[in-house]
Design a protein around this nucleic acid. Structure first.
Length: 586
DNA sequence: GCAGATTCTT
């Protein structure tokens, strides 16, 4: 906004001049100059209601994200037009005031204005924000009634809304009915399929789109590549990535990011680093997402050197204050075995968020410093930060790995009562592990039985393993019986049980379980139906959990490996320092 | 003049 014509000599006190200035501020999302224009407008005495400046003012504030100022201006408008009201709905939606956005829409209806196609596109976004398909359907019906359903923009928004709310079938129905489709239409539909893991279906659409003469753009390629990467198919993702470059297209930053984090998520740290280098060579500047995506690769291989390089790069890029990277860096140092570096980064974060606290609490826990973990947990609350589920996973696993049975149990019991946090699978897993490690098998048994949620295989496995170690075959048998009697919340119990016996080499029991399975005709239900119905939030959680699971699995090995490495590193560093000292003395 | 799809930490 340096080019704003703020030369007051050339000041033309006309509404045209104000309109041009406001438009420019709106386009460039420049709040401060916009406020200056507003102030000048105010002192000039021009009535914003006489000219159409009112909606432009609202638009300027809305586009800059200043909802409060937009609202203040809006309230002074005598007869708000569609534009002003659309801007209000938009501003409220983009800033999370979904209910208020709907309020403005209702006001619009009350004033006898049905709105236009943009009103409906924005309103559908509001429904996405609320994750409310029911409202989305209402908007759909209303839009149909007033005849906006055939607008490409509205149909696109409908597809987007249905996909994000987990109703891909409805999205497909809207898609099929469309007479004219643009790139965004296809991309939204492709995205919908990618997000529920149906990359094959997405690919079919991708090819069909090309056949119909529409060239996929960056968004389409990104959606495809990201879809494959998120589904754990880094080979498929990379095939697309290569195809994209073969077709003479230049991948943009987001595409590189998707591909890099895809490799990291499928544990291919080397490929990720290679790609990152290629990205730099091709002249694309990485952003904070690139670095947060790449950093876990350092933890995977325990390469603290690479981590330090990225850390340095972050400062050179002026991203030092970015809270997302900061947490990822803490985690990186933690996984690479350097508590001190992690702590340094943590201390330098001016405004910490929950992820930064959790990363540091987890770091202490991983390195055997439970007391510090708990101290930090307390400090966090003193500083007014609310603990979340992840915080408790960190604390409980710290207790479990360091044998703090009573403390761990106390924290576990207080979770719901004092903090109002739902106890999840991971928390149960930590505490079952805690009890098993300290040989309190009966308590572990009771805890597993009282679990109100579906008991995951990992917990059952940990329990059986504990029974083996502590010689409690009686409890193992009881648990097995409970699984068979379906007393335990465990669909597919037979399968788990036979797997457990198989892992133990007890083939006789395996055969028994199989027989029982056939007799009772109780086959494991194929788990496909929930995919269609699951909404996006749940899916995201699920994906996160799957990722976390993968990380947890390797983490143990890595931490051991890293500890060894960092020990030898410290040794060599020590030696270096000594040699430096010697040289100085000389 | 108002939209649309992609990437990220615990």
């Amino acid at each position: 906004m340096k080019t704003m014509p703020f030369s007051f000599k050339a000041f033309k006190l006309s509404q045209d001049w104000f309109a041009t200035c406001l438009h420019k501020c709106l386009k460039e999302k420049a709040l401060r100059p916009g406020k200056q224009v507003h102030a000048t407008l105010f002192t000039s005495g021009i009535d914003i209601n006489v000219w159409s400046l009112n909606s432009k003012l609202v638009g300027m504030y809305a586009s800059c994200g200043d909802v409060r100022s937009a609202r203040l201006v809006f309230d002074k408008i005598q007869n708000p037009n569609v534009f002003a009201m659309n801007w209000m709905v938009l501003a409220c939606t983009f800033n999370g005031y979904y209910e208020e956005a709907i309020g403005y829409f209702c006001l619009m209806q009350k004033l006898g204005n049905v709105g236009n196609e943009f009103t409906f596109s924005i309103l559908l976004k509001t429904c996405v924000g609320l994750m409310d398909v029911k409202k989305g359907k209402e908007v759909h019906a209303l839009g149909k009634k007033v005849g906006f359903e055939d607008e490409v923009s509205v149909s696109n928004a409908l597809i987007d809304m249905y996909c994000k709310c987990g109703e891909v079938c409805y999205a497909q129905r809207v898609f099929d009915r469309m007479v004219k489709r643009d790139v965004a239409t296809w991309t939204s539909m492709i995205c919908g399929y990618c997000n529920i893991g149906k990359t094959g279906q997405a690919l079919v659409l991708f090819e069909r789109m090309k056949l119909e003469g529409l060239e996929p753009n960056d968004f389409t390629w990104n959606a495809m590549i990201a879809g494959y990467a998120r589904g754990g198919d880094s080979i498929g993702a990379f095939a697309l990535f290569s195809r994209m470059t073969r077709e003479g297209l230049v991948p943009d930053m987001v595409t590189w990011n998707a591909m890099i984090s895809g490799f990291v998520q499928s544990q291919q740290a080397g490929e990720a680093f290679k790609l990152f280098r290629d990205m730099l060579v091709s002249g694309i500047k990485p952003n904070h997402v690139t670095l947060t995506g790449l950093l876990p690769a350092c933890g995977l291989t325990g390469s603290i050197q690479r981590g330090r390089e990225i850390h340095g790069l972050m400062y050179r890029m002026g991203l030092g204050i970015n809270i997302f990277i900061a947490s990822a860096i803490i985690d990186m140092y933690s996984k690479c075995g350097s508590v001190k570096n992690a702590q340094n980064v943590f201390d330098r974060i001016p405004v910490k968020n929950i992820a930064s606290w959790n990363a540091m609490i987890g770091c202490y826990g991983k390195h055997g410093m439970v007391e510090l973990s708990i101290q930090l947990f307390e400090r966090m609350q003193e500083e007014g930060m609310q603990a979340n589920e992840v915080t408790f996973i960190c604390i409980l696993s710290a207790c479990s790995h360091n044998g703090l049975v009573e403390e761990g149990l106390k924290i576990f019991r207080s979770m719901k009562e004092s903090y109002g946090i739902e106890v999840g699978k991971e928390h149960y897993a930590c505490v079952v592990d805690l009890l098993c490690r300290s040989g309190r098998m009966l308590e572990a048994y009771e805890l597993v039985k009282e679990m109100p949620i579906e008991v995951p295989d990992s917990i059952v496995g940990a329990f059986f393993n504990g029974c083996k170690i502590h010689g409690r075959k009686d409890l193992a048998k009881m648990m097995a019986q409970d699984i068979l009697n379906m007393e335990l919340k465990k669909p597919g119990g037979y399968v788990t049980l036979s797997n457990i016996y198989a892992a133990d080499g007890d083939w006789e029991e395996v055969e028994n379980v199989r027989k029982m399975m056939k007799e009772s005709n109780n086959h494991k239900k194929p788990g496909y139906s929930w995919l269609e119905k699951m909404n996006l939030l749940e899916r995201k959680e699920k994906v996160m959990k799957v990722r976390k699971g993968k990380v947890m699995k390797v983490r143990k090995e890595k931490v051991m490996k890293v500890r060894k490495e960092s020990e030898s590193e410290r040794e060599s560093e020590g030696k270096e320092r000594e040699s430096v000292k010697v040289r100085k003395r000389k």
